[in-house]
Design a protein around this nucleic acid. Structure first.
Lengths: 87, 87, 87, 87
DNA sequence: CAAGAATTATGAACCC
DNA sequence: GGGTTCATAATTCTTG
C-alpha cells in the first residue's frame, strides 16, 4: 500500500496535496460531464413534450426497458395486492 | 390538441412510432453515458479511499467548491455549534 | 383620521405585527401537525416492510386507488407506446 | 402442516389480505388528514396574501424560524452578494 | 441491512 | 393558460 504522504508540494496535515488536487480536479471534470449529459436528457424530454408525448409515461417506459423482469415482477405483485383487496 | 403525426413507420394509436423509437433510444444512450461517468466518479472515490483519503470529506470539499457561499454557511454553523458548547 | 395600520403591538414597516405573529404561529402549528401525520405514515410503511410487504408496490397501490381513471389512462398510454416499439 | 399465514380472509400468494387492507386503509386515512392540514395551511397563505403580506417572504420566515442556523447562512450569503457587487 | 444523505421526479404555485 | 420556478415526494446511493 502506498502512503498518502506527499513527495511534492505542500504537506497539509499528512495529506498529499498534489494528489488531492488531482483527485478533486478529475472529479470536478467528470461532474461537469455528467451535468452536460443530464441537461441533454432533459432537453429531449422537453422536446418530446412539445411533440405531444407524455413525459411521465416516457420515463416509465425507459424504466421498464431497463429491467423488464423487475417490471413484470412488480406488476405481478401489484395485481396480487389488488386481488387481495378485491379490486 | 396537436397529434404527434407520423411520417414513417407504423402509426400506433396516433403515436409516431419512429419518432418515439428515436426519442427512447437517444435517452437510453445518454442514460448509459451518464452511468459510465457516474461509475468513473465512483472509481476515483474508491481509489482515493484506498490511498487514505476520507471520502466523506472529499465529497464535502467538492460540494463546497461548487458553491463557495455554502462554505461560509458551514463555518457559520460550526461557530454556532461551538458557541452553543461554550467554546 | 385614517389608521390602516395596527393599533396594538409594534408596527414594523407598515406591517401589522400582531397579525403577522398570529399568521406565523398558526402556520407553524399546522406544519407540526402535518409533520406528525407524515411521521405516522412513514412508520406504517416501515412496519409494512418489516412484515414482508413491498413498500414501492404499496405506494403504487395507494396511488392507483386515489385516481383509478388516471391510472388506467396512463397504463393504456404506456401500452400504446410499448406496442409502437414492438414490445 | 403449520400455517403461519392469516386465518381470516383470503390468503393471496402468501400475502395476509386482512393485514394488507388494514395497512392501506390506515395510510389512506392519514393521507386525507395530511391533505386537510395542507389545505388549511394553504388557506392561511391565501388570506395572508389578501391582507397584503408577501407569501414568499412568509414562507421564508417560517423556514428560517425552523432552522436558526440557516438564518445566519442567509445573512452571510446576502453579505457575500453585496460584497460581490461592491456594496 | 438499516439509516440517512443526495439525487431525481412529480406536483403545486406564480407570473406573464 | 402556459411555462417556469419553487416545494414536496420518492427513489437511489452510501455509510455504519
Amino acid at each position: 500500500m502506498t502512503e498518502p504522504t506527499p513527495t511534492v508540494g505542500h504537506n497539509t496535515g499528512g495529506i498529499a496535496a498534489e494528489r488531492l488536487r488531482s483527485i478533486v480536479e478529475r472529479i470536478e471534470r467528470l461532474e461537469s460531464e455528467r451535468q452536460e449529459v443530464a441537461d441533454q436528457i432533459k432537453d429531449i424530454y422537453i422536446d418530446s413534450k412539445s411533440a405531444g408525448y407524455d413525459v411521465k409515461v416516457l420515463r416509465q417506459l425507459i424504466r421498464l426497458r431497463k429491467d423488464p423482469a423487475a417490471a413484470d415482477e412488480q406488476e405481478q405483485l401489484l395485481h396480487t395486492y389488488m386481488h387481495a383487496l378485491g379490486m
